Simulated scan of single mutants.
Amino acid sequence: MSHAPDPLGSTHPVTTEVPDLRLVDWAPRAQVSLPVTRVARAAASVIDVHNHLGRWLTTDWCAPDVPALLAMMDDAGIEAVVNLDGLWGAELEANLDRYDRAHPGRFLTFCQVDWTLLRRPGGEREIQDQLRDSAARGARGIKVWKNVGLTVTGPDGELVLPDDPRVVGVLALAGELGLPALVHVADPKAFFDPLDVHNERFDELAGQPDWSFADRDHYPTFDELLAAFERLLVATPGTRYIGAHVGCVAEDLDHVERLLRAAPNLVVDIAGRLGELGRQPRRFRRLVERFPDRVLFGTDAYPLSREQLEVHFRFLETDDEYFDYAPGEEIPPQGRWQISGADLPADLLPGLYGDNARRVLGLAER
Rank of each mutant, 00 (worst) to 15 (best):
Val183Asn: 02
Pro209Trp: 07
Glu251Val: 02
Phe291Asn: 10
Asp25Ile: 00
Leu92Phe: 08
Ala244Thr: 05
Pro264Trp: 14
Arg55Met: 08
Leu195His: 14
Ala346Asp: 14
Ser340Ile: 08
Tyr322Lys: 05
Asp196Gly: 12
Ala94Glu: 09
Ile270Met: 14
Thr299Met: 07
Val82Ala: 12
Leu253Lys: 08
Asn199His: 12
Ala263Gly: 11
Gly278Gln: 05
His52Gly: 06
Ala71Asp: 15
Leu117Ile: 06
Ala80Ser: 13
Gly341Gln: 06
Val24Lys: 04
Ala227Asn: 11
Arg216Gln: 07
Tyr241Arg: 11
Gln308Gly: 11
Pro67Tyr: 00
Leu21Gln: 03
Val46Ser: 00
Gln208His: 15
Phe222Asp: 06
Val49Ile: 14
His198Tyr: 13
Asp74Ile: 08
Arg290Gly: 10
Ala364Phe: 07
Asn51Phe: 00
Leu195Arg: 11
Gly141Asn: 08
Arg201Ser: 14
Ser134Tyr: 02
Ala71Met: 03
Leu92Ala: 10
Leu177Pro: 05
Pro350His: 12
Leu266Ala: 09
Ser45Met: 04
Leu21Phe: 02
Thr16Asp: 01
Leu131Val: 12
Asp75Cys: 07
Gly335Ser: 07
Pro194Val: 08
Ala4Leu: 04
Thr239Tyr: 15
Gln334Leu: 12
Thr236Cys: 15
Ile242Arg: 11
Glu17Met: 00
Asn356Val: 04
Arg22Trp: 06
Glu307Trp: 03
Val295Gly: 00
His50Thr: 04
Ile242Pro: 02
Thr151Val: 08
Asp203Ile: 02
Met73Asn: 12
Ala68Arg: 13
Leu225Ser: 08
Pro220Thr: 04
Val167Lys: 01
His218Ile: 10
Val267Ala: 10
Asn199Pro: 09
Tyr322Ser: 08
Gly272Tyr: 09
Val39Met: 04
Ser340Tyr: 07
Glu310Met: 10
Asp156Ser: 10
Glu93Phe: 01
Asp133Lys: 09
Glu307Ala: 14
Pro19Gln: 02
Arg286Val: 01
Phe192Val: 10
Gly77Ala: 05
Gly351Pro: 02
Gln112Asp: 13
Glu176Gln: 15
Gly86Ala: 12
Leu226Gln: 15
Arg336Ala: 05
Val246Ala: 14
Val168Asn: 05
Pro180Trp: 01
Asp210Cys: 03
Glu124Met: 07
Gln308Arg: 15
Val82Met: 04
Asp156Trp: 01
Lys143Ile: 06
Ala68Glu: 11
Asp319Trp: 01
Arg282Trp: 13
